[in-house]
Every structure is written in structure tokens, then in C-alpha cells.
């Protein structure tokens, strides 16, 4: 399953204004970044999971967390090997492998990464890209042109991957071995596919631009959008709560 894919629903999270969702995620991330306490980071991860469970997104949030744990683990090892403060914890001969300061900052960093990435990725689970862009045009007066480019880019990601798999299948049918474990060999096999893929994608983008042009794309103004994306009381509450969260994490 695509981790960034939209998951339709009617929950209180889904119903928030897209601009609110974006701002709330941003504030949530700020709370994660300003905190220097591992417990606060863990608390923020836990809080996010609970909110998701109530919004019916529990499964999705857990599988995201699992994926993020891998990233967190990698960052943990890197940080562990590079931070040299505190007293040495593991030594081989006279060579110090890691220190107490390293363990602390590595734990903090990997928790912080998980805590910030989780809400960002959940944003895509509860928001259609078109709604996000539409609301930013309507409410924040972002030029429609940019919003259109972003939605188009997102639209092309699945097209691109499915086309890539088609080509890969065709190559496999001709007896090319893709299941090789050797990463260099794999790269050597994939690179020749990228060029024709890019060419055909560029052609598609061009045809899309043509279609947009003859349907009056250049006439678009902020006021012509059909959907209104009004703010409601829930949006205010949501933002207020995230601000409180920032204050708490700054104080603790």
C-alpha cells in the first residue's frame, strides 16, 4: 500500500479545513522540535496515535509508525557513532565506540524524527491533494498556477510507477533478471529504463498542459473556484489545542 495515499473517511480529522490541517501539522511539528525531552517526544507520538485511533485511522498510523521506526533506527545508529559527549560506554582497546551523551542524543533524535514525520504523513491520509491546493488558493490566495503544478506532480507519481512496472515486466518477459541482490547491477539495469520513461512522461505532461490550456486554464482567478472551504468552530479549537501543546512541550 502507498503510505501517502488518501484514505476516505468522515471523521472529525477529515472534516477540518485543509488549511487548518496543514497549520496544525506544522504546529505539532514545532512542538516536537522545540522539546528536548525524550518523554515529551514519546508522549507526542503516543498522543498522535490516540487521536488517529479515534479518527478511525489507527491501523494506518501504526503501520506508518512501524515504517518510521526503521528510519529512526538508522538515525539512532548514525547519531550514536558521531556524538562524543559524556563518558564512554563501550570501548574496544583504546577506541571509544559510543558514549552516554551519544545514547541520549541518538534516542532524542530518533524519537523526534518519528514524532514529526508521523503527523506529516497522516496529513496525506486525511486530505485529498486537490482539496489542500484548492483551499490554499481560496483561503491563502496562493496563485492557482502553483497549486496546479503541485497537484499535477502528485497525480503523476502513481502513473509514473505503474508505467515503470509495465516496462520492468516487459524486460522481465525478455529474460532480464531484476531480482538481483547486487545493488550496482540493479542500478545498471534500471538506468536505461529511466530515459524512455522520462520521455513518455514529459509527453504526457505536455498533452495535459495542452488540454488545460484549451479548457481556459489561463483565465482562472481566485474567485472562480467552485468549492469554498469555509472555516468552522472546530478549526479554531484544533489550532488552539496545538498552540497549547507547543507551550506544554516548551515548558517541560
Amino acid at each position: 500500500m502507498n503510505l501517502l495515499q488518501y484514505q476516505p473517511g468522515e471523521s472529525f480529522l477529515h472534516k477540518l479545513n485543509p488549511v487548518t490541517k496543514l497549520l496544525a501539522v506544522f504546529l505539532y511539528c514545532v512542538a516536537c522540535i522545540i522539546s528536548d525531552s525524550i518523554f515529551v517526544e514519546l508522549g507526542l507520538i503516543f498522543l498522535m496515535l490516540i487521536i488517529c485511533f479515534f479518527a478511525g485511522l489507527g491501523k494506518r498510523a501504526l503501520s506508518l509508525t512501524k515504517n518510521l521506526l526503521i528510519l529512526g533506527g538508522m538515525m539512532f545508529i548514525l547519531q550514536l557513532l558521531f556524538v562524543r559527549t559524556g563518558t564512554p560506554l563501550l570501548k574496544i582497546g583504546s577506541l571509544c565506540i559510543f558514549t552516554t551523551g551519544g545514547v541520549f542524543s541518538a534516542l532524542l533524535l530518533s524519537c523526534r524524527i518519528i514524532a514529526t514525520m508521523l503527523p506529516m504523513m497522516l496529513l496525506f491520509a486525511i486530505t485529498q491533494m486537490t482539496d489542500l491546493c484548492g483551499a490554499m488558493v481560496k483561503r491563502l490566495h496562493i496563485p492557482y498556477r502553483y497549486a496546479f503544478i503541485v497537484t499535477t506532480a502528485f497525480r503523476f507519481v502513481p502513473l509514473f510507477t505503474s508505467e515503470f512496472h509495465d516496462i520492468e515486466d516487459a524486460q522481465k518477459a525478455r529474460g532480464v533478471e531484476y531480482d538481483t541482490k547486487n545493488i550496482f547491477k540493479k542500478i545498471g539495469l534500471v538506468v536505461p529504463l529511466v530515459v524512455p520513461l522520462l520521455m513518455s512522461s514529459l509527453k504526457k505532461v505536455d498533452a495535459g498542459a495542452m488540454s488545460a490550456e484549451v479548457r481556459g486554464f489561463n483565465l482562472r482567478t481566485v474567485r472562480s473556484g467552485y468549492r469554498d472551504y469555509p472555516f468552522a468552530a472546530g478549526d479554531g479549537v484544533c489550532i488552539a489545542l496545538t498552540v497549547v501543546l507547543i507551550i506544554i512541550s516548551a515548558l517541560l
Binding site: T151, R155, L159, A207, G208
Partner: peptide, 13 residues
Amino acid sequence: VFQDIDSQMVSSI
């Protein structure tokens, strides 16, 4: 309405 159906689409929904 163009001949190539896929590439004339401008939205995801």
C-alpha cells in the same frame, strides 16, 4: 475531447 484519454485529464478525481 482529445483522442488520448489519459493524458487529457487534469485532475485526480
